[in-house]
Design a protein around this nucleic acid. Structure first.
Lengths: 243, 243
DNA sequence: TGACGTGTCAAACAATAGTTTGAAACATCC
DNA sequence: GGATGTTTCAAACTATTGTTTGACACGTCA
């Protein structure tokens, strides 16, 4: 925060900074497309023309907000929650999930970048390319590094990718679809209160699933499940190729 | 389809039906907010005023599209893919996943309702309440019925809810975040080609995870993971039960 | 003091999108 | 045929939003 909430910032103060803060909050809450420049300026106590003067246009303001948030996030808020790369893989997975959920469900400035990126996933802006290159890619690599040892000695690339998606999908879903989840299952914890229980669940769910690949007998059992009657479609699959 | 594609529909024909078809396609492709009435009318070969005349306004047209698609979907396209309730639970789970993925990733009119509902999850419209009540609720109940037997004799409600979310989240993610997935992991199959491989993966992943709750020792092993310093854990067991 | 650059502001501008209008075309029934 | 109701159309209207303008205030420096 800054002088936005307490003072109308009429005087000399740094309106550029106020705009950045207000824009970050608005974008995170409402999404890029649905956020209006007027709302940002009202929140920042600035004139509509201020955005044009300081940033050029809405798009460049958005880019600047991203840059600013990234700079902040890189200082603190690591995705490993302080758990080093030598910790046991399950602990690292749990830390990853916990960190991601925190960035999505907790309120406050520290969670804005996560929310912005989550929105970019479902409603891309022209900045998507940059975000993928600079944020999603490293995030993906880190997740792969965490998951790989859980998949056994030499997991193939496609399995690694699919499993990574399975893990992050569970985290993002609770943010993306919170409007429906809260209506459909109101008995579940919502918002920040959901972070810890969800971390427990997703970690447990995912660890059990990942173990299938490192345990042949588990796979065999599951395959046994699969051949049942149903629709009689011959279902051999690839399994052999795997790439 | 109808007379939209082949004929400019200049004459007497049913413009109301053409509008419904065009609107369904546009809404499914672009989403409610980003779809313009003018685009719908252009596609339907009708005048801008036609929407007002036949439906009142954009919102009521949207509701009518939903009603129409639901009516269609209820006739065919069951969520169990023709697999009856007496099929083995894993087969039913697979059918559920396959059906949902088809509704999200395949092209064509039969997949429009799924896409509309998926969009409603992340960008709710005023029709959200209706959709939750009339579609998400039954869908949720059906999924719970499929999952429950996989969780063991008497699963508790919260576990059931969380596990249901874990399953559907994996399906929706591939649709919601396709823009990023295709950029981040271009080697993975995209669009309709992803349906079968994804069905295999999600089913396998989820079945293995769900088994944790019906197999106490599995849980114990996972807990062991948490304590232990990484490798060297004992890993015998399972293959016996399978329920 | 006066020129100059920096910020700020109210107001206007342009483009888009939802909605509405009034007249014309068309069909139907007497 | 003519009255009546239905449907279509081009055009305008309204509201919103991103963007721009020109004036004005303020500080700095010569």
């Amino acid at each position: 925060m800054r002088s936005i909430a307490d003072a109308p910032a009429p005087a000399a103060a740094d309106t550029r900074a106020a705009l950045l803060q207000a824009a970050a909050a608005e974008f995170a809450e409402t999404g890029y497309h649905h956020t209006t420049i007027r709302a940002i300026c009202r929140r920042a106590g600035a004139n509509v023309a201020a955005v044009h003067y300081h940033f050029g246009d809405k798009g460049q303001l958005y880019v600047e907000v991203l840059r600013h948030l990234v700079q902040e996030a890189n200082r603190r808020l690591p995705y490993d929650m302080g758990v080093g790369p030598d910790a046991p893989p399950p602990v690292r997975l749990r830390a990853f999930v916990r960190s991601l959920l925190g960035r999505l469900l907790e309120p406050g400035p520290h969670a804005r970048l996560g929310k912005l990126i989550a929105r970019e996933l479902t409603e891309p802006t022209p900045s998507l390319e940059v975000i993928v290159r600079e944020h999603m890619r490293p995030l993906s690599e880190q997740l792969r590094a965490v998951i790989a040892p859980l998949l056994g000695p030499a997991p193939d690339e496609r399995t690694l990718s699919f499993c990574g998606l399975s893990v992050v999908s569970q985290c993002f879903f609770y943010f993306h679809c919170r409007a429906v989840v809260s209506r459909l299952l109101p008995e579940l914890p919502q918002g920040p209160a959901a972070v810890e229980p969800l971390t427990d669940h997703i970690t447990r769910f995912s660890l059990a699933a990942l173990a299938t690949w490192s345990q042949p007998d588990q796979t065999a059992r599951e395959a046994g499940w699969r051949r049942s009657p149903a629709r009689g479609r011959p279902r051999r699959r690839e399994a052999a190729t795997s790439r």
